[in-house]
Design a protein around this nucleic acid. Structure first.
Lengths: 330, 330
DNA sequence: CTGAAAGCGCTTACAG
DNA sequence: CTGAAAGCGCTTACAG
């Protein structure tokens, strides 16, 4: 910039004015400055600008896995809102590891992102307190934070799961299995609570062999599914409720290889669910809407909204397609 | 940092040493500085650090759509490599718009990212010349850049498409339709070239009504598919080659609603392809590998490799599953 | 082992 | 309409 000023024979401030399109420069001066800029290949260094202005016009997004078909649209929605506000998006995957989440979040804070959208993986977010106190707006999405008060956008995991299981009960099922994610994950726990509420609401007992929680890798899910389908103790389950899209996909594979028809309702919609045999009934969330709402809340904070932390809960939608309407088979 | 120094009764440089874990500080001094840091809630401002050091330890990724099931794993792979090198990832979607790509790339350059991985959308990348000259390492992935020399990582689009179409020809198909993306997109053009090469190689004529190019939205693809399946002129096609995963998914939907069985081979693998009826034969690429190779190449440049620009071409793999083995039906 | 000075490339506040 | 000075928060190069 100094070089540009020297070449154009003007002061630094004038170059700054031209670069930022500020008023108060004669057309003639402006032309001279523009010429110097192109001749020297000048490109403004935003690092310096950021240092001086305080705002970075960038926000951070930390989620579990950028490549997961549930989080990818969420991420894209956050990006679109950021773009509409002239901000860039820095994002990273926590891989469901609390320590990695913390490292990422703190790295983003050190870069002085204006705000943060976080899908929490860790079990304690008090490490964020100094950052929030220092002015980093933070919104949690998909799951609530632990240990601090902050804006949060969630789906109705409890209600959605309860409705899905009630749907199976209404079709005559009495022995219904639940295959879910790690119980420390909020969404997994809420969906399990929904399952239990639906069963209890219908006066049905839950045999604990019908509940399987754990990592969503195919091996574990396959093993648990096969165990539940085997005839043991209280009789095999006639229906399954799968608590997220990764689990559902694996269970669909297991069921595809079997004679006996077992009813299935899955939490989370997924592409091509309607073209499977039978088409898969799901409790659908809207990942893009979660992302959009979270980002909008974030920018409202950045614009100075001083309301108390908000908690939004988005509804889910039961989509009957066939697999959830299979009657109980002996 | 000034406050910390004052409170600890030391110089600025000593605080800097402690914050960066540099040697040459007595344990006692270090303790005093640490106390001041926690008491004041000091957090290093990386913007200032970046301004001084020159390197930002961040790279940019610009692709078509973060939420696309093809690009999401590519993006995740780039993130993992960046993480291994201690860098953050800033990314954005161009939405297949050359102007938006340019804006994003230039915004990333203004932030002085150390390097750039780009899936080009625009048709002219000379705007990047000054940036590259200024030292921003750039790698293009999935598609080559136009108008400049740069490192590039591609799939074997031509060979993959030719093999897929040859597979259909070997099953006895003579009238094969091609449904592809916009012809200005490099991958789309290459795959079409592969189709034509396979047909020509078998001495088969191509009726131009069998070739449909355009945006990959469901309406256009559905209309073109239905048109090709209708009996007209040279007779209806008995097989279709779909040139990317978005197109394939729509065509699967169209075929699912029809009596006559039509063979199908799609470019790009996709989740659940093996559970459809019939399971879908595909020419698979490895999006994560594309991303990983591109990012590795980028970091090799950042470490100072001065070789001539490289062009990597990754092989594709034909995965027969059923839909591509359907014989010709009248 | 420790620190004062200069500077990274901008913007802010002010004066002409 | 234009510019000189100070400063954003660090690090670098140097001296003690």
């Amino acid at each position: 910039m100094k070089d540009v000023a020297a070449r154009a024979g003007v002061g630094l401030k004038t170059v700054s004015r031209v670069v930022n399109g500020e008023p108060g420069v004669t057309p003639d001066t402006e032309r001279r400055v523009q010429e110097a800029i192109t001749a020297l290949g000048f490109r403004r260094n935003d690092s310096a600008r950021i240092l001086r202005k305080g705002r970075t016009a960038s926000i951070g997004l930390v989620l579990e896995d950028l490549a997961d078909p549930f989080y990818a649209p969420l991420s894209r929605a956050v990006e679109e809102v950021a773009r509409a506000h002239g901000a860039l998006l820095i994002n990273g995957s926590s891989a469901e590891d609390g320590e990695r989440e913390r490292e990422l979040v703190l790295a983003l804070c050190a870069r002085r992102v204006d705000g943060l959208v976080v899908v929490p993986a860790g079990g304690d977010h008090r490490y964020l307190e100094p950052e929030i106190a220092a002015g980093v707006a933070t919104v949690f999405v998909d799951r609530p934070a632990a240990g601090i008060e902050a804006d949060t956008v969630l789906s109705d995991n409890f209600g959605g799961a309860r409705a899905g299981v009630a749907h199976l009960i209404a079709r005559g099922h009495r022995r219904i299995g639940f295959i879910g994610d790690l119980p420390r994950i909020h969404t997994a726990a809420e969906r399990l609570r929904g399952y239990r509420a639906a069963m209890a609401g219908a006066g049905l007992p839950v045999d604990e062999s019908w509940v399987a929680l754990g990592p969503t890798g195919p091996d574990r899910v396959r093993a648990d599914t096969e165990r539940m389908l085997a005839d043991r103790g209280p009789g095999p389950v006639t229906a399954l409720f799968t608590a997220n899209n990764r689990v559902t996909v694996t269970v669909v594979r297991v069921l595809a290889g079997r004679q006996r028809r077992v009813a299935l309702v899955g939490f989370d919609d997924f592409e091509l669910a309607d073209l499977l045999t039978p088409p898969v009934t799901v409790v659908a969330q809207e990942p893009a809407l979660l992302g959009r709402k979270a980002a909008e809340l974030l920018f409202r904070r950045l614009e100075g909204s001083g309301d108390a932390p908000q908690r939004l809960e988005l509804p889910t939608r039961l989509v009957p397609r066939g697999s959830g309407e299979v009657p109980p088979q002996p």
